[in-house]
Amino acid sequence: MLLSFYNPDVLGDVLIVETAEDVAAQDTTQKDNVVRIFNTETNDAIGFNFFGLGEELGIQNESGQVFLDDKQVDILNSAIAKTGFSDKLETDNSPKFVIGHVAEMKAHPDSDHLHITQTEVGLDKPVQIVCGAPNIEQGQLVVVALPGAVMPTGAEIWPGALRGVDSYGMICSARELGIPNAPQKRGILVLDQGTAGQAFDFEAAKNLFD
């Protein structure tokens, strides 16, 4: 997983890269223009800060989340290797907001409102997602934020657990997706058409509630 953010007006020429979910037990090591952020319990990298590479990466005029291609990731890996760190980043530009099909659904054993779904998202097998929306039903076409998605609010989606049950994404409401004129009430967005795994079209969705 690879999340990248660049905000030169606030932070200067610093690219922030996240490779794993934030943890409480963490520390940093800086070598030259690379800061490695790591889990102190496992020594696994959870992210990097890269200084002074905006122009070389061609992102100096961007702000916010940036999506790096193979060539740009190669530049970062070269910078990592020059410092002596052994980590290697991998490009990840697979769609993170996709259409899902709720193939199975059952009640959560430890909740009166949560449901455990098996939702098809175009992978080899369905993903398990725990959902608390009151209008969710088996057979629906929905919008899924997969791990690695960044919501319009800036919230990041990572694998987690709800009431002790693993969940690998979030089934979204129109409001959570930032769709204009979305209903201001609880409930997921249910689509009329689409194919499981298809990237959700935010541009087309702007007219859903006109």
Rank of each mutant, 00 (worst) to 15 (best):
M1D: 07
L3F: 01
S4A: 15
Y6A: 12
P8S: 06
V10Y: 04
G12D: 11
V17P: 05
E18W: 07
T19F: 00
T19A: 00
D22F: 09
V23F: 08
A25W: 00
T29S: 12
K31M: 12
V34Y: 07
F38M: 10
E41N: 07
N43D: 14
D44E: 07
A45Y: 00
G47W: 03
F48P: 00
F50A: 08
F51W: 12
G52V: 08
L57H: 02
E62A: 15
E62Y: 01
V66E: 10
V73C: 05
I75R: 03
I75E: 06
N77W: 11
S78N: 13
A79S: 14
A79Q: 09
A81E: 14
G84A: 04
F85Y: 10
D87Q: 06
L89I: 01
S94I: 00
F97Y: 01
F97E: 10
V98Q: 06
V98P: 06
H101G: 12
M105C: 06
A107F: 06
H108A: 10
P109Y: 01
S111H: 04
T119L: 10
T119K: 06
V121F: 03
G122L: 02
L123C: 02
P126Q: 09
P126W: 04
V127D: 12
C131S: 10
C131L: 10
G132S: 05
G132W: 05
A133L: 08
I136W: 04
L141E: 13
V142W: 03
V143F: 14
L146V: 07
L146C: 11
A149G: 13
V150K: 08
V150W: 01
M151G: 13
A155H: 09
W158V: 11
P159A: 14
P159N: 14
A161G: 13
R163C: 02
R163V: 06
D166T: 08
D166K: 08
Y168G: 00
G169I: 06
M170W: 02
M170D: 04
I171M: 09
A174F: 13
L177G: 08
L177Q: 03
I179Q: 06
N181Y: 15
I188H: 09
I188Y: 14
I188R: 14
V190D: 03
L191W: 07
D192S: 15
G194P: 04
G194H: 11
T195Q: 14
G197F: 07
Q198P: 00
A199W: 14
F200K: 01
A204E: 12
K206F: 07
N207Q: 15
F209L: 02
D210M: 04
D210C: 01
